[in-house]
Design a protein around this nucleic acid. Structure first.
Lengths: 273, 273
DNA sequence: CGACCCTTTGAGGCAAATCAACTTTGGTGG
DNA sequence: CCACCAAAGTTGATTTGCCTCAAAGGGTCG
């Protein structure tokens, strides 16, 4: 499934359409001035891909970056024997940095150090680097917006390192659910945010394998842990991708590595068997 | 061990001294113009701390960033019960970003999301954020230099996530040794870079506990794995912090997750016992 | 020169991986 | 609309790589 095959005709997005977009999608562009948008609009273009499409091929020349307008992308790195680590999920409104360059001397953009694939239908806006990079010099404000975005990414990456290196499977899943819950509400989540007190709906677009590869676990462990949470009354679910967090306090305690009442009650549960 | 107690008198560095520094220490400043240096010099200052000093306290207000001039700093995050994950080691020439802000609206610099401690005597240059941030607007070039630095950090962080989530202990140690070997040569490494063919000297300033907390392992596993490498002839060592890589090909293969001849010979070794 | 800390080595245990069915889901075509 | 089928998810049994607990060397610095 190669990216270009399914590209719809790609008309250049008009400035006007870009401005419209910034009103409906909260993204990097939202923070830009009209003048900046007008310039970017001249060489960005908007398109979409079905689920399971290759957006970025690990190791190929890094020529573009993307803003995700709807849907979710998985970003990953692989080892020689096929082991995969998902670096992150890029959701609607987020920026997928394919390696924007800012050192003027260097024209070589290098290669992508990671792969990216769609996990559902994804609408996105594509920025060619050779057009984008010069703008950073003309519009310093754009650079600062990007800088803020990168700083946030680094903070998130550091939290993920703590998770991968030092958390148990229970703590990993708890952290993951909490993180997905605190995302800017997506279409799916907003449909039913009439949360009864202390119960929160959560839509997980990715598969269990993806969750496992994101948390450094196996599918089986992910599945078992979520079943345990269900048994403990921390979550309930209706369908594989739709669930509801019923005890967010327990998740918070777990995510921070504290002993939880849920764990106590789990011991109690075991004792009863 | 609080940072301020051991601070020597802190005279503002004169522009001239800063310019001298850029010639001897390869750092962020190396890429700045003389004009930029002159401005930064007015509120940066240079000092040093002994080993084991707290440079940044996790959770305290984020007021400064640092350039490390010599020595090594460990950056880490902790869980409630004391489990620790080392996010990275900052060596001479590297920038320790304490959270530089670039969104003009926000005057709140937040709090440090990580801690930082010296693992040996560290000379460094300190930049107060409230002075530094405005410069980003006056000197866009500075922002681009920073952007390049952040991008490199993100790439490194992503590699570390692959390591933490998907590599075995052998692969983790191999990757770590390789990474330390490819660092810009430090004082210690250069002293004996008269490497006999395919043998490379390597100085590891940090303790085994630090290595363990960096790789998501325990001290015992780090020690055992390095002993195995020694037995397999991949490394030799003289003292805990000084070793020599004698089979870099084996390390490279391991780090990429490939079966190695060393592993084969390990099986052979076991068979002989 | 001795005390302390760091490192190494050994023995045993456990959390998560692996291997192996079985069940549910969702998409497709008759 | 239902039957079918492949893909995804769950559950169980067993194995294993790394952790935990324990104790014996080595280095270093007062």
């Amino acid at each position: 499934m190669v990216y270009s095959h399914s590209l719809a005709p790609t008309p250049y997005t008009t400035p006007q359409r870009c401005l419209d977009c910034t009103r409906t999608v909260h993204s990097l562009c939202t923070n830009l001035t009209e003048q900046e948008i007008a310039h970017i609009a001249r060489f960005s273009h908007r398109t979409h891909l079905p689920h399971g499409s290759l957006l970025i091929e690990e190791g190929s020349p890094a020529i573009a970056s993307f803003t995700i307008l709807s849907g979710t992308v998985r970003v990953f790195k692989s080892l020689a024997d096929g082991r995969r680590q998902i670096i992150g999920f890029i959701d609607a409104g987020q920026f997928l940095n394919g390696g924007v360059r800012c050192d003027e001397a260097n024209n070589d953009n290098g290669t992508y150090t990671f792969g990216a694939e769609t996990i559902n239908t994804v609408h996105f806006c594509r920025f060619q680097h050779n057009n984008f990079n010069p703008l950073l010099k003309d519009f310093p404000h754009l650079g600062r917006v990007l800088l803020t975005s990168l700083t946030a990414h680094i903070t998130k990456a550091q939290e993920q390192m703590l998770l991968l290196g030092r958390k148990t499977s229970r703590e990993k899943i708890a952290s993951f659910l909490l993180h997905r819950l605190t995302l800017p509400l997506t279409e799916k989540n907003t449909t039913d945010s009439s949360a009864s007190d202390s119960s929160f709906p959560l839509f997980l677009p990715m598969s269990r394998v993806d969750i496992a590869d994101y948390l450094g676990l196996t599918v089986e462990t992910v599945s078992r842990t979520m079943s345990t949470f269900r048994r403990e009354g921390i979550i309930t679910s209706s369908g594989h991708h739709t669930l509801r967090v019923t005890n967010i306090a327990a998740l918070r305690a777990l995510a921070n590595g504290q002993k939880t009442s849920a764990e106590t009650s789990q011991s109690a549960f075991k004792a009863n068997v």
